[in-house]
Design a protein around this nucleic acid. Sequence first.
DNA 1: GTTGTGACTACCA
DNA 2: ATGGTAGCCACAA
Length: 102
Amino acid sequence: MDRLKINELIWQAVASIPKGKVVTYGQIAKLSGYPGLARYVGLTLKNLPSNTTLPWHRVINAKGEISFPQGSPEYKRQKALLKAEGVIFNKAKLPAGIYDWL
DNA sequence: GTTGTGACTACCA
DNA sequence: ATGGTAGCCACAA
């Protein structure tokens, strides 16, 4: 009886990410209880309002990069937010071991 | 009820 | 190493 939409679960999972760490969509999906819905995580975050307090910028793809094309405003925003969190980008990729959240 | 799509992931050449 | 293809589940029209 999952009255709760996957959206709610995603929000919780993303909100549970500690500062200075990042996780992949697959991890979020798995933590949300939907191991195969990595894609939907992104769709959910996309549906989030601009005034959300959710740290969606801590969610990245399995390659350790931002899923947005470089040069895109969202890409820059996420990169800036991560930098403010203490996450350092080696060019466009993130150092491994950062996903060692759980 | 069917079809299409997606801020993904894993596998194969 | 890189690039392309297939699989995956949930939601919207």
